[in-house]
Design a protein around this nucleic acid. Structure first.
Lengths: 231, 231
DNA sequence: GTATTGACTTGATCCAGATCAAGCCAGGCT
DNA sequence: AGCCTGGCTTGATCTGGATCAAGTCAATAC
C-alpha cells in the first residue's frame, strides 16, 4: 500500500455516481483532500478494529470486504467494484470497522478526508440526499442478503446470485454468459457457503440442465427457467 | 388498524430523538401531515410488497419486523421499541417493503408523509445529518447481526444478546436481571434459532451456571463472566 | 371448577451444509 | 523440461441446529 500525490483525481472523481453532479470547484476541493491508494493483489485497505480515516472510493479494480473469525476463517460481506464507495456508516458514527478490506487484484482507491464529507453534507442538501440514497440502497441490499441467508437454501442463493449477475452483465437477454468476477472461493463465502459446497451445488445445478460451467464462465441457456425455479 | 385525527402529536413527536432539535413550527407541520395508527396485538402495520406510504415512528408499544417464507415460517429482523423509526430506506428508494411488520402488543405508530420528510432533508441540513446518523447506526447494527449469523454459533448469539440487553437495561452492573421484552419464540427468531433450540440453549447455558431462568427474567450473577466466555 | 388456548419445554430423529482428506489441473517459476 | 503453488473438484464423514411429536404449565374463558 503506497500513497501518491493527488494527480488528476478531479476527472476520476467527477465520474463517480456519488459526486457526478457536484460543481467543478467542489470536486477540486475533494481531490485536494483525498489520498490515492495503490493496492496490489491481496493488499490490505483496512483491518478490523481500525478507525475510519475517510470515505473510500474504488476507482478501478476490486475490493473484498470480509469478517474474520478468531479461528482464521473469513466471511465475505461484499465485493466492491469500481465506482463504489465504502465506509459511510463508520465514518459518520466514528465507529471502528467491523470488517477488513483487501484488494482482489491491482486496485486504485481514493480516500476522501472525513471533514470534507461532513462539510459537503452541511453545505449541499443535494449531496446529503444522494448520500442518503446510497445508504438506503446498501441497507436494502443488506436486507436482501439477510433474507437469503436466513430463509433460503444454498442452491437458491446460488441461483439468485447468477440471475442478478446475468441481468447486470447482459440485461434482458434470454440467454447469457455470466463471468464470475472473483475466484469461486470468494463468491462462495459471499453466498455464505463453503468452497466445497458451492462447487458441488454449482455442478449439481448444471447437471439439472440449468446452465453449463466453463471455468469461471457460466453459460445460461434460459434465464427465465432459472427465474421460474425460484418461484 | 384504525386511523384517528392527529391530536397532540406535536408533543410526542418533539420527544423522538430524530426530531428533538427541530423548531416548533416544523414539528407542527410534521404533526399536521402525519397519521396516527392504533394497533392492537398482532395488528399489521404493513405487509411484504406494499409500497411505503411514509416514515413510521413507534410512539409506544413494540413492533416486530419479519420476513416470511413461502412455507409460512418467518424470520424476525428487528423488534422496534418506542422512539424508533422505520422505513427510511424504502421511503427514499421508493422500493416496496421486503418484510412485514406486526404489533407485539397494543401499539401506537405515527406515519409521517413522505413529502414532509423529503422537504426537511432539502431545507434542513441538520435534519439530513441526523437521518444519516440514524441510517448509519442501522447499517452498522445490521453488520453486527450478519457477523453473528454467519460466524457465531447459536449459543454465542444468545450470550451476546443477553449481554447487550443487560448493558441496556442495567448499565455497568456486575449482576443484572434481564427481562425479555418479547415472547421467547420471537427472540429466538430474532437470533435466527428455532424456538426449541433457543429453549435448549438457554437451559443448557443456565446449567453451566451462566445465569438462572425465571420465566422471562434472566438473572445474571456475573456479567463479566459472560463477557469472558465470548472471547 | 373445567375446558381451551398459547407459550414453553423435552425428547427423538433428521438433514443441509461443514469439515477433513485426497486428488486434479493450469499457469507461473527456474 | 520439471516443479511448485493456488484454485478447484470429489468423496467420506460429521454436526449444529431444524423438525416432528409429545408433553407441561400457566392464564384466560366458559
Amino acid at each position: 500500500m503506497r500513497d501518491s500525490k493527488p494527480v488528476h483525481n478531479e476527472t476520476h472523481l467527477g465520474r463517480i455516481p456519488l459526486f457526478d453532479d457536484l460543481p467543478g470547484e467542489e470536486i477540486q476541493q475533494l481531490a485536494k483532500v483525498s489520498k490515492t491508494l495503490v493496492l496490489e493483489k491481496c493488499g490490505t485497505l483496512f483491518r478490523t478494529g481500525e478507525t475510519c480515516p475517510g470515505l473510500h472510493v474504488v476507482m478501478y479494480g476490486q475490493v473484498k470486504v470480509a469478517f474474520s473469525s478468531t479461528q482464521g476463517s473469513e466471511k465475505v460481506v461484499d465485493i466492491l467494484q469500481a465506482g463504489q464507495s465504502f465506509g459511510e456508516a463508520e465514518l459518520l458514527l466514528d465507529e471502528p470497522y467491523r470488517a477488513h478490506a483487501q484488494a482482489l487484484g491491482d486496485t486504485l482507491v481514493l480516500q476522501i478526508a472525513k471533514t470534507a464529507i461532513l462539510d459537503l453534507i452541511a453545505r449541499n442538501p443535494g449531496f446529503a440526499h444522494k448520500l442518503l440514497n446510497g445508504m438506503s440502497r446498501r441497507l436494502h441490499d443488506l436486507m436482501v442478503d439477510l433474507e437469503g441467508y436466513t430463509l433460503h437454501t444454498g442452491a437458491a442463493r446460488v441461483l439468485t446470485f447468477l440471475l442478478r449477475e446475468a441481468s447486470a452483465q447482459e440485461p434482458c437477454n434470454e440467454s447469457a454468459v455470466v463471468r464470475l468476477s472473483a475466484p469461486k472461493g470468494v463468491i462462495a463465502s459471499r453466498l455464505n457457503l463453503s468452497p466445497e459446497y458451492f462447487s458441488r451445488t454449482l455442478h449439481h445445478l448444471s447437471e439439472q440442465g440449468y446452465f453449463a460451467i466453463h471455468g469461471r464462465d457460466i453459460h445460461i441457456d434460459s434465464v427465465s427457467r432459472l427465474q421460474l425455479s425460484l418461484a
